[in-house]
Computed example of a mutant assay.
Amino acid sequence: MKTVASAALGLLLLSSSVLAASQKLEPDKVNAAEWSAGSGKGKELDPVLVKAQVLLDRARFSPGVIDGHNGENLQNAIKAFEKARGVKVDGALDQEVWSKLKETSAEPVLTEYTITEEDVKGPFAEIPDKLEDQAKLDRLAYSGPEELLAEKFHMDVDLLKALNPGKPLDKAGTAITVANVAASAEARKDRGKAAKIEVVKSEHVLRALGKDGTIIAVYPASIGSEEKPAPSGSHTVRAVARNPNYTYNPDYAFKGVRAKEKFEIKPGPNNPVGSTWIDLSVESFGIHGTPEPEKVGKAYSQGCVRLTNWDVAELAGMVEKGTPVEFLD
C-alpha cells in the first residue's frame, strides 16, 4: 500500500510539474501574437486570446478577468465589439475582428511593472466564507500581494504567475510582466459621461450609452439572484459610494446565512459588494463590485448587478445622480 501511495504521489507531482510548465507564457510572443484559424481552440493559455482580451479591455468592451481562455465573457465582449464595428455578430474571434481590434491601439498589450512597497505592505486579510464571520473583520482587505496585483491589472492570478515564473510577487523591487490595461488612458477619459445605462439580463452584460445612443462601454455582469431577482423597467442612479460598507438584511434570506438581525461588513475589495457601490432608485438594489471577479457574468450573484471591481470603478466615473438605468429582458 505504501509503494502504491508513493507512486500515486509521484505521478501527481509529475502531472503538476507538466501543467506548470505548460502554463508559462513568453511576453514577447504575446505582444507579437497574430490570429490564425487555430487560435483559441486549445485548453492551454493562448497568447492570441491574452492579446485580444487586453485590446478589448482597453477599448471598453470588457472581457472581465484577463485569463487567456475563450470563455463566455470574452465571446460577449467580442459580440459587443462586432456590433459597434458593424461586422457579423457571432462572438467569434476571426481575421476581420482581429484586424479591427488591432486598429484600436498599437501599444504593446503586456508591459513591465516594478512591484512597489505599497503593493506588498498590506495589511492583508484571510477572508472567511461566511458573511457573519466577515462582519468580525476590521477591513475586507486583499488576501495578499498576488490578489492585489492581479486585480490592479485586471488579470487572473494564474495568468500573472504564468507570465512571471519563479518571480516573487510579494517582494518590492521585483520587475514583473503585466497586462498593459493603462495604455491609452487619456483616450478612454475622453469618452465622457454615460447618458444612459442598460442592464441586459439575457446577455449578462451592462452597456453604457453616450448622448447619441452609441455604446461607449460594455461590461460582463451577474444580474440578480433567486433570493433577490433583478427589477424590470426604468430607474435612475441615486448616488455613488466608493469603499462602501455592506449591510446584510435577513429579509434576503441568503443561503448559508443564519442571522435574524441586520449586520454590517466593513469596507475593502473583498467586501461582498466590492470596492464600489452605485445606488439605484430601487430600494436596496445597486450596481457593485465583487471579491470574486472570475465569477462575474456567470449565474452567480447575491442579487443586484455585479461587475468586477475595476469595471464598476470605471463605470462610477461615468455616471451621476439621475443617470437613467434601464433593465432589459
Rank of each mutant, 00 (worst) to 15 (best):
H288R: 08
W310H: 13
A313I: 03
Q134W: 00
A32W: 00
K83E: 12
I127V: 13
G210A: 14
F61H: 05
Y142V: 01
A253I: 07
E117F: 06
S275M: 06
K152P: 02
E320N: 09
T247P: 06
E96R: 10
S16C: 13
K130F: 04
G10K: 15
N180S: 11
C304A: 12
D170S: 14
A33D: 00
P229T: 00
D279Q: 14
I287C: 08
K161W: 07
V87Q: 14
V312D: 03
F327G: 05
W98D: 06
A33V: 02
G268P: 06
G71A: 02
D190N: 12
V319C: 07
L12S: 13
P123Q: 11
E26A: 12
E203A: 15
T174N: 05
K24S: 03
R60E: 12
K24R: 15
I223A: 09
A316S: 14
K41S: 12
A106D: 10
L163G: 07
V282S: 13
I265T: 01
E146F: 00
S16F: 15
E151S: 11
E44W: 11
A125R: 11
L149M: 02
A183S: 15
T114A: 12
K262G: 08
K121L: 06
S184A: 15
G40W: 09
L25F: 04
K102M: 10
V50S: 06
A162C: 06
K201G: 04
P244F: 04
I216T: 12
A194W: 01
P63N: 07
P231H: 01
K321Q: 05
K196Y: 01
V30I: 06
G71P: 03
Y300G: 08
Y142P: 04
T116W: 11
E146Y: 00
Q95V: 14
V240S: 02
I287V: 12
N180T: 07
E44T: 14
E326I: 05
P165M: 08
G38K: 13
L131I: 01
V319D: 05
R85I: 02
K29H: 09
V109E: 00
I278P: 11
V157A: 15
N249P: 08
P63C: 06
L49D: 02
T3H: 05
L137W: 00
S281A: 12
I115F: 02
K41V: 11
P165W: 02
P250I: 11
E283S: 14
L101Y: 00
G173P: 02
S225R: 09
D67L: 03
F254W: 15
R58Y: 05
H235A: 04
E326A: 02
A33R: 05
Q134D: 00
A21D: 08
A52N: 04
P229L: 05
P123R: 11
K295S: 13
R139C: 08
E186R: 12
D67Q: 06
A172I: 04
K51E: 01
I215L: 14
L280V: 10
P272E: 01
S6P: 01
A106G: 09
I215V: 15
E186L: 13
I278Q: 05
G64K: 05
